[in-house]
Simulated scan of single mutants.
Amino acid sequence: MPIRPYRRRRSVLYVPALNHKALAKLPALACDCVVIDLEDSIAPSRKAEARDAVKHFFETRVADGKEMVIRINALSSEWGADDLAMARQCRPDAILLPKVETARDVLDANDMLDELDARASLWLWAMVETPRAMLNLGAIAALGRDRSARLACLVAGTNDLVKDTGILATPDRRYLVPWLMQMVLAARAGDLDILDGVSNDFRDLDALGHECVEGRNMGFDGKTLIHPAQIDLANNAFSPAPAEVEDALAIRAAFALPDNADKGVISLGGKMVERLHLDQAERLLIKAGL
């Protein structure tokens, strides 16, 4: 299994597979990633039609640098296996698995991809959106340390968590925050990226802006979105500040000096800086587009 590359995932836009107008507009959008959805946004009677639409889209699209992901239906559903086989043929960057509740759910998808002889760089993302998933979060995230399991990213499914638990969805998300923090902690333990859930009212950009800032402060890598109007706010919130970029560039330059090539710790600006800070700096610079 190849080393998993780090990608900018500040803005991750869901697009229904049957929204042909939205799919046609994707090259003009500034989002980092697109998730083409075969699950919640598609009625049961149109699942096969949506699958054909996704296949046609990937056959005719011109690559524009965006990370492309396909969200399939759950493998336990009547559509999941066919979705997975079709998605593998489309050669997206990743496949998003909904309703993941145990580590076995991810491993089953991985085994099916291996049987389909999928390329090693086809990654899996996992939705965390049920109470059972929260209880098994540690075991699910631990698969990120096993490169053969393909898992690269966790996605908070906040709408389903609210529905399944019955908590009150307040504007400040106070009852969700403890679970969101658990997701961030598990993702970091598993060396995974973690994406915040959607903001449902795409016209309320103030609410979205608050959630984006809150999500970044909690440690999320980006925000899942439902409308192009939300992209700029997410990109701005999850982009590093100029001072952070300046510090990261200084760390990278310092470790690049010949005298520091074999050092694990150096002094920079009166502070001790370790190699782990170089790793953090490199990730930040990628997120900044540098």
Rank of each mutant, 00 (worst) to 15 (best):
P5Y: 01
R8I: 05
R9M: 07
S11E: 00
Y14A: 02
V15L: 11
L18V: 13
A24Y: 10
P27C: 01
D37P: 09
L38I: 09
L38R: 08
E39T: 06
S41R: 02
A43E: 04
P44H: 06
P44K: 09
K47P: 04
K47L: 01
A48C: 09
K55R: 15
F58G: 06
E59V: 02
T60I: 11
M68T: 02
N73I: 13
A74G: 12
E78W: 06
E78A: 10
E78N: 13
W79E: 03
A87I: 07
E101R: 12
T102C: 06
A103Y: 02
L107E: 09
N110Y: 07
E115Q: 14
D117S: 14
L122A: 01
N136C: 07
L137H: 08
I140P: 08
A141I: 00
L143H: 10
S148R: 11
A152L: 01
A156T: 06
D160V: 03
T165L: 09
G166W: 15
I167L: 13
A169S: 15
T170K: 15
Q182Y: 09
L185F: 15
L192M: 09
D196E: 11
V198G: 01
A207M: 00
L208D: 00
G209P: 07
H210C: 02
T224D: 07
I226V: 12
P228N: 03
A229F: 00
L233F: 01
N235T: 00
V245L: 09
V245C: 13
A250K: 15
I251W: 06
R252E: 15
R252N: 08
N260W: 05
G264L: 08
G264F: 12
V265I: 15
S267N: 13
K271N: 13
M272R: 13
H277S: 10
Q280C: 03
A281T: 02
E282C: 07
L284R: 15
I286F: 03
K287E: 03
